[in-house]
């Protein structure tokens, strides 16, 4: 197994690099969301903090979150209530360690990294469920239940879409998938790509799949009782999730670091490919109304799962035939 032959310094450096990416990229996505949403809705978004087009708005938000009181409701299950934000956030940090961004640039090159990322995102949802239950609030509980139902419905198409790509590449390693990628995949794996994108947005509980947190009817669902830094952790988890799934989309379906340019621009290509995906996820939030719970389940079980299964069969037939 790799990873065991690294020196301590190397491990610390790699971890620090992942942590830095984990702290910077979600902020960039958050700022992009502020600005993109603002302009799509005919307004400017934040303009004052930091001077130039409100670039420091999220830093200001962070400072505000830190200053707030750390509240735990009297009726809540204290221990789980406090653990839940970490449970939602940490898996994404761990998952980011295995995503390759440049030839040879991956913090931990595990052999089954594609599966590893799925596992991490699955564990992260547990944080929302626990938050929903531990808050001892009926809106939170409803949100937690919706979240669980959504996770069970959308985890399957997500796994199937990734399985199709892994089957096409003949490996579970993300690095191996990039090596095996060819432009034909853009057409061949297109259904899987669409399924992956939709299921990823649903996993993140982003609009139009934000039934579990529906702020207008169940007051942010599992997050109702959260404030201050713990609430910020949930927000950070959401943005980290956008970053993770965007980069993962670029790696799985768009060939990651490959591009018509000198080899050293690899990481630039990864970012260039991931950025439009993140933009698309933000765009979906502005463009579509929230799906009702039954529509949400119908889309997953009658739409995405059959498409993903069909794609899997197609991939298998092509792999065996060629």
């Amino acid at each position: 197994m790799t990873g065991l032959d690294l020196t301590v310094v190397e491990i610390v450096l790699r971890s620090a690099a992942v942590l830095a990416a984990f702290l910077v990229l979600p902020l960039l996505v958050g700022q992009m969301e502020h600005k993109v949403m603002g302009h799509m809705q005919g307004r400017l978004g934040p303009m004052y903090a930091g001077g130039f087009h409100g670039w420091a708005q999220l830093v200001a938000d962070g400072v505000k979150f830190i200053q707030k009181e750390d509240l735990t409701p009297a009726a809540a299950d204290r221990r789980l209530f406090r653990i839940a934000p970490a449970l939602a956030l940490v898996p994404y940090l761990v998952a980011m360690a295995v995503v390759p961004v440049h030839p040879g640039w991956v913090a931990a090159d595990v052999p089954a990294s594609a599966l590893f990322v799925l596992v991490a995102s699955g564990v992260s949802i547990l944080g929302m469920l626990v938050a929903g239950w531990a808050s001892a609030n009926k809106y939170s509980l409803i949100g937690g239940m919706r979240s669980a139902a959504q996770l069970l419905a959308y985890e399957l198409p997500l796994v199937l879409a990734v399985a199709s790509v892994c089957l096409a590449a003949g490996t579970l390693s993300l690095t191996g998938i990039i090596d095996a990628w060819s432009p034909v995949w853009l057409l061949w794996q297109l259904p899987a790509a669409l399924v992956f994108l939709v299921a990823a947005v649903a996993e993140l509980n982003r609009p139009p799949f934000d039934m579990p947190i529906a702020d207008a009817e169940i007051v942010m669902g599992p997050f109702t009782e959260y404030g201050g830094l713990r609430f910020a952790f949930f927000l950070l988890a959401e943005y980290a999730g956008i970053v993770l799934f965007s980069v993962l989309f670029a790696v799985l379906f768009l060939g990651g670091w490959r591009g018509p340019a000198p080899a050293w621009t690899g990481w630039l290509w990864t970012l260039l490919k991931a950025l439009p995906v993140a933009f698309l996820i933000i765009w979906m939030r502005v463009a579509w109304p929230r799906l009702r719970e039954d529509q949400l389940q119908r889309l997953a079980w009658l739409g995405l799962v059959p498409v993903a299964l069909g794609q899997l069969a197609l991939t298998a037939v092509v792999v065996v035939a060629l």
Partner: peptide, 26 residues
């Protein structure tokens, strides 16, 4: 040294079975 089994163990049991249990409890 059974990496795949370990990952599937977490994906299926923690990611699906326990979520189902929590759902039923809620």
């Amino acid at each position: 040294g059974a990496e795949f089994i370990a990952l599937v163990q977490v994906l299926i049991y923690v990611g699906a079975i326990v979520v189902l249990v929590l759902f039923a409890l809620m």
